[in-house]
Amino acid sequence: MEITGSLSVLGAGFAFGVGAIGPAIGIGMIGAKTIESMARQPEMAGRLQTVMFIALALAEAIALFGFVLAFVLMGQ
């Protein structure tokens, strides 16, 4: 199999792929802890859900930097 294309595409793949590892772990932990807290105090479920989504959005933002960087590298 012949390898074609520029190295910047490889860089773009890595920028998103490697950059998504941390946020993925973070989102998993946020979800796990929220479920744990909801099981302990079901009456707090509504409030917890709101806070969870805000925390999710913050963790996701870091993955998005990799996404933007990937697009920038693709254009090189």
Partner: peptide, 13 residues
């Protein structure tokens, strides 16, 4: 300053 960036890219992506 990065809030508008993350807000827009999240939805679009």
């Amino acid at each position: 300053l990065v809030r508008p960036l993350t807000l827009s890219v999240r939805l679009y992506a």
